[in-house]
């Protein structure tokens, strides 16, 4: 039965059957099913969601709903975990992401964060309207292999350029790769800002990060 339940939970989450998925997760946990295993199943479901997104079957509604299901199951399962979860999971690399200063938009950035996360990257998202100094400070601490700069407004072109120039001036560019995306960003903006690459969507961001980190 429990193997059946496992598969059903993954399918329900991946197929966006939120109510059924939450009811089943609750029932499994009440029956004493391992909360860690439930979280693993959530990740399997998110992998399926990510694959369907990459194939163009899923879009923003599914990513957001999947994220909310994950949060809700997590909130049920995490308090039940008594033992230490053991070694941290292996990641493909560290990615720092944020919306550049002057710009308050975050939908695109959030999708990229979600997709990188479910593709096994360790992502640090430092939000919107991020000052240049903040990027520099976090690059020093977090030492990302990839930096993602997001921006929706046309003013972001200049902010991206300034951010990248300041990172270079601080001697932090090194081997770190910089990708940009959002709104009207294209190859021309990439050249203007001095970024290594630009992407039109979250799949492009995943592909760039995989390529750069050998993942």
């Amino acid at each position: 039965m429990s193997q059946d339940d496992e598969k059903r939970l993954v399918d329900m989450m991946a197929d966006m059957n939120e109510e059924e998925a939450l009811a089943l997760a609750r029932a499994m946990l009440e029956r004493g099913f391992s909360p860690l295993r439930v979280l693993e199943l959530c990740r399997e479901a998110m992998d399926l969601v990510g694959k369907r997104f990459e194939k163009g079957e899923y879009f923003l509604p599914e990513l957001i709903l999947a994220g909310e299901m994950l949060e809700q199951v997590g909130a049920m399962a995490k308090p039940l975990i008594r033992t230490a979860p053991g070694a941290a999971p292996q990641t493909l690399g560290r990615v720092l992401i944020g919306t550049v200063h002057g710009d308050l938009h975050d939908i695109g950035k959030n999708i990229v964060t979600f997709m990188l996360d479910i593709n096994s990257f360790e992502v640090k998202d430092i939000g919107i309207d991020v000052p240049v100094e903040k990027f520099i400070e976090v690059i020093r601490e977090f030492k990302p292999q990839v930096l993602g700069l997001s921006g929706f407004l046309t003013l972001a072109f200049e902010s991206m350029k300034e951010t990248i120039a300041a990172i270079e001036a601080a001697g932090l560019r090194g081997d770190m790769k910089i990708m940009i995306g959002g709104g009207q960003v294209d190859e021309r903006v990439r050249a203007y800002t001095g970024a290594d690459a630009f992407g039109n969507n979250a799949m492009a961001a995943v592909a760039l990060c995989r390529n750069w980190t050998g993942g």
């Binding site: 046309t154 072109f157 709104g183 009207q184 960003v185 294209d186 021309r188 903006v189 203007y192």
Partner: peptide, 9 residues
């Protein structure tokens, strides 16, 4: 005309 061209072209 792309915004990128109008602003940086």
């Amino acid at each position: 005309i792309p915004a990128s061209m109008m602003t940086t072209g």
